[in-house]
Every structure is written in C-alpha cells, then in structure tokens.
Design a protein around this nucleic acid. Sequence first.
DNA 1: CGAAAATTTGACATGACTCAACTGGAGTGG
DNA 2: CCACTCCAGTTGAGTCATGTCAAATTTTCG
Lengths: 195, 195
Amino acid sequence: MSFSNQAYKALIGDLTSLVEIPEHQLSLVISSFKPKKLTKKAYLLNKGEVSNHMRFVAEGCLRSYMLDNNGQEHILQFGISGWWVNDLYSYLTRKPATHFVQAIQPSTVLQIHRDTLEKLYNRVPSLERFFRIKFQNAYTALQERHLDKMSLTAKDRYENFRRKYRDIEQMVPQYMIASYLGITPEFLSAMRKKE
Amino acid sequence: MSFSNQAYKALIGDLTSLVEIPEHQLSLVISSFKPKKLTKKAYLLNKGEVSNHMRFVAEGCLRSYMLDNNGQEHILQFGISGWWVNDLYSYLTRKPATHFVQAIQPSTVLQIHRDTLEKLYNRVPSLERFFRIKFQNAYTALQERHLDKMSLTAKDRYENFRRKYRDIEQMVPQYMIASYLGITPEFLSAMRKKE
DNA sequence: CGAAAATTTGACATGACTCAACTGGAGTGG
DNA sequence: CCACTCCAGTTGAGTCATGTCAAATTTTCG
C-alpha cells in the first residue's frame, strides 16, 4: 500500500489493534487522513476556532490546554505518537474551541475532516466501533486521573506521572508537567528538591 | 409495543434522541434490557465484583464512588433518570470493580449483559453509534468537570453544581455533594453559612 | 555571547482540612 | 407518644498543603 511510511504505520497500528478492518476499507480510511507538519510552538488549534478534524499524533509531542479567568494555563492532555488530540467539545458541537492545541516539539499529525469521517462511518462499520472503544478507554483514563486529583497528594500524583509517562516527561518542560498535575511550577520545584 | 411502561420510555427516549433505529431493531434492543429494583442504600455493584452489565437509570437516584487509602469516599457520579451508571473500567476489562454503585433513593435500573450487548452491536449498527456518541459526550463532560476542579475555587464549583443539577441537589444528602465536589462536609457547611 | 525562557529559592499568605464537640431532626421500639 | 439513638449538619480552633510574589540562578538557543 502507498501509505506504508512511518507516520501512517502508527495510525494503522492503532486501528488494527482494536478492530478488524478488511484491507480495502483500511486503505480507504487511511487515505482519508491528511498529514500536517507543525514546527515547535505552532498551534494546531486556537481558542475561538471551530475544530473540524479528528487528529492523530504521528510523531512529536503536543499539548491541549485552556486558560482560566486568571489567565493561568491548565493542561488537559499531552499527545505523543499514537495518541489522539483535539478540542472534542468544539469538534462535536461545532462551537468555537475553548482550548488550544499546540506543538511542544516539531510534530506530524494526521487529520481527517468531520464530513469525511461521518461518511466513512457508514461505509466502514468497524470505524464506528473503533471510536466507541477509543472513547470508552479515554473516559476511564480520564476518570482515573480525576480521582487521582481528588484523592492523592501532589507528590503522589507526580510520582505516578513519572512512572506512567516516562516518555512524555523527557519531551516537555517541567512547568507544563506542573500544570498537568494541577500545581504551580514553584511547588513542583520545591517537591523535587526534597529528595 | 409491550415495553411502553414508564421505565422503558426513558431508555427509548435516550436511544432515539441520538440515533435512528428501525422499529423492529429498537424492540430487540429494548427487550434485551432487564429491570432491576433497588431499595434505598442497596448496592448495585460492590467493589471487588466484576461489572458485567451496562446500566441505565430509569428512576430514582444512585451514586458511584470509590474509597481512597484513608478510607475516604469520593463520588464519581450521581445517576438519576436518563443517566447511565457503571464501573466502566471493570465492565471493559472484566477486572474486579474498584468502585461501588449504590442507590441513594429507591431506584429502578435497566441492565443489559455484556455478552448480549456485544452480539447486538452486530445486528444493530446504530447501537454502536449510540454508545460512541454517548461516550464522546461523557468524555467532554468529564473533561469539563476536571477543569473545574483544576481552575475553580470550591465555592464556584458549588454554585455551578447547584445551577447545573438542581434536581440532583434535592435527592442527595449534603455530605455527598461535598464529596462530589472534592471538599469536606465541614467546609461545605461553612461555605453555605456565609450567605 | 547575550537574551529569553525555565527553574529555583525563600518569605509570606490562604484555602481547605482535621478533630472534636455540639445541635437537631428522623426514625424506632417500648 | 415519649425517650433514645443515630445520622447529618454545624461550629470553631488549630494546622497543613499548596499558592503567591519577587528575586536570583541556570539553561537554552539564536
């Protein structure tokens, strides 16, 4: 197939690891995703824009974050190779995005337009299943993160993060990890000092 | 149809509000859900059990919660008529539940076994779509809640809660609302005093 | 090399928690 | 129908985890 390059391999891997897709349907799906390269710090989605694509990270590292009333950043999600990133709310409702999606490292994403995807759902039933499973998993993962925030101390959350996301830790500045954990960079720094 | 009673009406409404389902498929789906009545304080799911059903609340009010290392309760979700409640992680992985699901008021739920549902997915494609959409929405709602916890003060979260869930507020004791918001009952009480 | 960005430090502030005692209402049983 | 218990809610004093602010230091990178 003509999409055997590195970027698409990760996507194919993600799809086929969850559902069975006949070869010709798979190439139809794959070919509907368009690659987009991003330089470091480039925005894939700005607050206020409508998100019209589903987006898969082929390589690099991105983050999605929002700004609160005090102008503080809160990171919702990091995305490295194999992850999906988006402002899902905007994508689903077609309302202006409330979040930003920005590249932390030079990155490549593969995107598919909503209209294309909606049509594909009817031709490729496995795709519907794929996203159902994806969202179920995303939901439970987010639930776990939320419970961690409710029940664990900042130190424990930091240790969990390092254990779980060693790869992400290497790619992002410390103050973003603080933001992801829901603490200030100063406090994270202080925690690190004590052994 | 024979499932026109009150409990099933809410389920039918939920299904048909999101997807188109041919009449005969709809009755197939509906008839796969079995009602279960719960007295106040009864457990629908205990920690340690495997959750084998998807569960729709027809009437009453339930909560799902977990116990942290200090024995404190953390409420993940309330469920009133029209909501789905579960320990989704246990359902998906077939591992023992880490959460409890308990009736706060006398309640009726409609449940479908995982095996039945998996088979139905193949016969009723709309069902796959239904749950995809459900989980997308659940994910964005949870994301919003998580961001609230990150960026808002306890007082703001409480006010948001009251605005958003007036109906739930009536049905559950105050200390459970505190738990849902991630604060202590004492602190909620103190907040309420100051106007 | 120099400027900008990230991290560290330390003094001080505060939102929210802990604990223990108290109040009040809702059963329950004698 | 009263007395008793139990559970939810309230109060207040003291504490702690984490935040704020501002300055100093280190790292990154053009």
